[in-house]
Amino acid sequence: MLPFLAILVSWALIASLCAGDPKRRRALRTTGGQTPATRRLIAAAACLPGLLCLAAGDPAAFLIWLGGSGLAGWATALWFNRAAAPR
């Protein structure tokens, strides 16, 4: 349950990072996006669930979180750009 929750929380924050990513938005010719300070804050928050797994003395959950978050990030990048791809 712990790794599931950790991945879900991180995934939500990664999705927020992706949605507000200035470079991605520029590539789609849209303006706006998060400021660097906001992005650093969200990125740090996205790492917190993994650190909590370690602090809880559960290295297995940490590794699952690390792998799961990587996959979640990749899937998010694919999804956001798929939705925006020209038809």
């Binding site: 470079k23 991605r24 590539a27 750009n81």
Partner: peptide
Amino acid sequence: LKDIFTLRRSA
């Protein structure tokens, strides 16, 4: 890190 979400489709 800057390119981590950038997947250009029409470039």
